[in-house]
Nucleic acid binder design. Sequence first.
RNA 1: GCGGGCGUCGCCAAGUGGUUAAGGCAGCGGCUUGUGGCGCCGCUAUUCGGGGGUUCGAGUCCCCUCGCUCGCCCCA
Length: 430
Amino acid sequence: MEPLQSLRGMVDLLPAVTATWQRIEASAREHFRRAGINEIRTPLLEVTELFARGIGEATDVVGKEMYTFLDRGERSCTLRPEGTASVVRAAIQHGLLSQGPQRLWYGGPMFRYERPQAGRQRQFHQIGVELLGVADAESDAEAIAIAWDLLADLELGGLELELNSLGTLDDRARYRAELVAWLEAHREQLDADSQQRITTNPLRVLDSKHPDTQAVLAGAPSLHDALSPESHERFAQVRRGLEALAIPFRLNPRLVRGLDYYGHTAFEITSNQLGAQATVCGGGRYDGLVQQLGGPATPAVGWALGMERLVLLLSQAAAKGAELSQSAAPDLYVISRGEAGAQQALLLCRLARQAGLIAERDASGAAFAKQFKRADRSGAPWAAVLGEEEAAEGVAKLKDLRGEQAERRLPPGEVVALVKQSLAACGRQP
RNA sequence: GCGGGCGUCGCCAAGUGGUUAAGGCAGCGGCUUGUGGCGCCGCUAUUCGGGGGUUCGAGUCCCCUCGCUCGCCCCA
């Protein structure tokens, strides 16, 4: 039989890393709780049209990266490639927006059919925040601050906040025309990809990674100069907001987000330690999206962070020194022999667990020497032995694995009490 | 979709055409028929991702294929 494998780009998270995931999730939850942001959970599967309309038909995500299929009712369904469209759909569907501004967060798997590489999988995980119904520039700063503080708490170094304003739709339309004209005039000096994008997505030419193209682009018209005075002022206000919070940022006039719904504020938090996929968190303002999805005109700002990339950073940090959290050593390791012994061992474990202890039972039936070896390796301070003799007498032999105390034969209840007491004595709270 | 690198036991890993595929960790058994941490002994890949080919002979060379990985594109 050929062993089966997971699908390409679909990754198992083994116990060795789940602790890191939980740490990030717990930290995020706490930050959201303090910020008055509530969790929303939406389905993984949505009608394809939601993403086509929300993200934009012309984007790469919609054009070539979606997991789309027909269900048994011949409806076109898509595994969500991002979270915002679903959250907005849910808010509209349940009338949340008529109850005032909504501060929401979500987390979970997203799906994009791409070639996997470092920090990029086909099923990947995001945690995101959406502030719906807030128009002020300070809300942009607040959203960014929440992401920034959350990441700071994880003690990650080498992070940088990049900031730009995409202006309004009008601003961009005007700029786009100007840029296309300029790009056409310099077409010969651009790399093939960029030439292609003059027609498909001219703004994206700006952050081409091609060095020659970048050099040519130095003379290109800047989006910044094309912003209307109002857009300019709004951007300045966001920056003043961040400055007031002492959050450092770098202006990046080339920062263009790949999803159509962004306007005005756009930002990314990047790491210099991640390789090619350096963006840990990305987001911005999307004032037009709610209406575009059939809801009431509602300004909004939000972001999403990539769990895999965070985990990558955290693992690197751990490799450099600090130990990654491991599963806890048991308080009591129970070894046994024979059916009666195994039963008593199970009973003892259950009693211990009911009392709040971490109890592990050796189920190998191996020689006692082996079981003691495993007891030792488990890191448990105590081992309980249940052989034929103990089982017959209704006691367990309790052995101190780390100290000098003599073995004692005790009924199960007293074993649990004694272990608990010893933990309390050395300051550990079971 | 397009490039580059890689693929030897659960994990790490030697091997660079010559005939029995090192070693370490983990695992299992024993020295120790009911007591661990040390030590010692033994066992664990008819096989080198898979399939073809070259050769007297291939893990080692060639082709195809699958997988992993890094990068491009794009994004979290």
